[in-house]
Design a protein around this nucleic acid. Structure first.
Lengths: 342, 342
DNA sequence: AACAGTCTTGCAAATGTTTTCATAAACTCT
DNA sequence: AGAGTTTATGAAAACATTTGCAAGACTGTT
């Protein structure tokens, strides 16, 4: 009752191990009749081929490593899912790692993934430690940046232009006549997505001659609870902004709940815009105006890109694929009150 | 500039490959001075050990397979995250697979994970195809059921008692005097969690002499959008239930949004209860009454259990760990209107 | 200084596959 | 029917590591 290996199956089928191997990997090279025999033997013995041994031989490990900040946050769950579905359909298995927005621990995770000889690596964002990059370069593993797009990125990337996302959101608020604007963002230190959105939005406001009040800028992590708490503070007094630009929809949802709790009418007295268009944003009341990031599309496109890259180990792997953003106007933003009165 | 292997490092350090191997796996067996030499050589050459070769030798692959229905849904994202963090801290890497509530495709996924010689497998729920069980048994891989608890389960399990969850939710509604009750559940065919919750809730209602109206029972997948749409229908007319028991918080959120859209006051005219206590449930307005499933605790406990199981390959692996549920009363449920009038 | 015991290390076999090369068998033409 | 070509299969080397065994190098004790 020992676990059957390839030679056991070979004996059972009355062929050589080589033939069994071929049946598994290049079925067209073996005679249909022998193939049948082997398949029967595989079936009968309950043989499960050993990818480790296969990988050891220098062949594909049939795994792809994916490193995300976290999967607990709606932000990435959807993209992870789409990415996984895509590569899985091509026979790859996903090795998942998450670092909680800590680029140091990312290094260790990448190392671990490389130990498993992943055929390729996908990471979120373009910012990574020098050590991480060196490691990956040394191992000559295709690397793809997910989620971000940058026309002149050093890395292959599939994603959206976060500066454009910030710009679209900001322009929408400006177009509605808002000038008293608050921004709710996470720390931008280890997070290039948030940083890009914020600087682009700020630039738009500057250009429109809007002065951002320090007291209306707050920093919270991507958490509904903390976003709501922070916004309760921010919106408490009389002196509050007329519009809130939120780093993503999770924060925006928190902001809207805070307004609801305080009895502030959205959008009549306060406009709220998010970025992302996560599950639920369209359904909440009032429905959230946001900049849609098609997470699914990103995941699928990234999955395809990376599988292609694995298929051509010789060629340098470079692709820059931009997924389009779209401003989705819903019910959480409206014309600034100041614009209506006169 | 070839990728360094263990013999390269050995040469560089002036020792045998065996010694290098020992430095990596049993550092206490080698003299501190030699260890230093080897570590230096590893550092210098950029050597990354090959887990595949290691796994091939019959040793640990240092991977754990996790199969979930989906990761895109808040439901599992949190538990995946906690599980991953836990096993990752013990040096394991997660192989993730998702089957979208299709137990047939689960079989294929499990097979794929076994090909990678995962050291253990965790799956969500206790219901799985016979083929899946056979496969895993043949490979003698420790198997853990996640999310569910059953006192007499055939599998080791770490999770909650879903019947209790359904019972708690139903009893809460009964205690508030509701008798006109709707239930919003997904299809329970391939989903033992939903099934257990539903049958337990139904039993409670029966026992209380409550007759469930067929027209108030609806079936929707775990999606805010579809839950909201279905509830808009359900709640449209005059003849509507006074309380809604939802299979989980995602559905409950959809129900609350539907009520908001229709101008139905929650909880004054409609009570809504969910199960799960997902991120955001506490913050939404009105805050959702729900049965808390401590996903994080489940993930951590499961991670620990499975690592322990891997540590003792000889002993039969059996653990049944029940994580406690808790009814969290918030603002979305209230006393039935009928109870107040007289 | 000899002895027993304990550490440290290297040798070589073993792990499960893939693949190159060679050979044998089966066709296809003429 | 024979030569040439294609197809199908097997033998064996290679992949990168771990580990049982055995031998050599220390340690402390008498």
């Amino acid at each position: 009752m020992i676990k059957p290996d390839i030679v056991f199956v070979a004996k059972l089928a009355g062929v050589s191990p080589a033939t069994v191997s071929r049946v598994m990997n290049h079925p067209d090279l073996v005679h249909p009749a022998t193939r049948k025999k082997v398949e029967l033997a595989v079936e009968k013995s309950g043989y499960i081929r050993n990818r480790a041994a296969q990988a050891m031989h220098g062949r594909r490990s049939a795994t792809i490593g994916l490193v995300v900040p976290t999967v607990a946050n709606t932000i990435f769950a959807e993209v992870v899912q789409a990415f996984n579905d895509t590569v899985s359909a091509q026979g790859f298995t996903l090795l998942l790692a998450s670092h909680g927005y800590d680029l140091d621990s990312e290094y260790r995770l990448v190392r671990k993934l490389l130990e498993h000889r992943v055929d390729a690596l996908a990471v979120v964002g373009l910012d990574h430690s020098a050590g991480t990059f060196r490691l990956i370069a040394e191992q000559r593993v295709p690397l793809l940046a997910l989620w971000n797009y940058l026309a002149d990125s050093a890395l292959p990337c599939v994603g959206v232009d976060n500066r454009e996302a910030g710009r679209l959101a900001a322009e929408h608020l400006v177009a509605l006549g808002h000038r008293r604007i608050g921004m709710v963002f996470p720390a931008t230190f280890d997070n290039d997505r948030a940083r890009d959105r914020k600087t682009a939005a700020t630039a738009v406001f500057r250009a429109a001659g809007i002065e951002l009040q320090e007291r209306w800028q707050v920093e919270v992590p991507y958490s509904i609870a903390q976003a709501k708490a922070a916004c309760l503070d921010l919106l408490a007094g009389e002196d509050r902004p007329s519009a809130l630009l939120c780093a993503n929809d999770v924060i925006a949802q928190g902001a809207i709940y805070a307004a609801a709790r305080l009895g502030i009418a959205v959008p009549a007295s306060l406009s709220v815009i998010g970025i992302g268009d996560f599950a639920g944003s369209a359904q909440m009341e009032p429905a959230l105006t946001t900049v849609r990031i098609p997470a699914q599309q990103v995941g699928i496109a990234a999955g395809q890109a990376i599988v292609t890259a694995i298929g051509r180990p010789d060629a340098d792997f470079m692709i820059r694929s931009r997924v389009e953003l779209e401003l989705i106007m819903r019910a959480s933003t409206g014309i600034a009150a100041e614009m209506i009165r006169p």
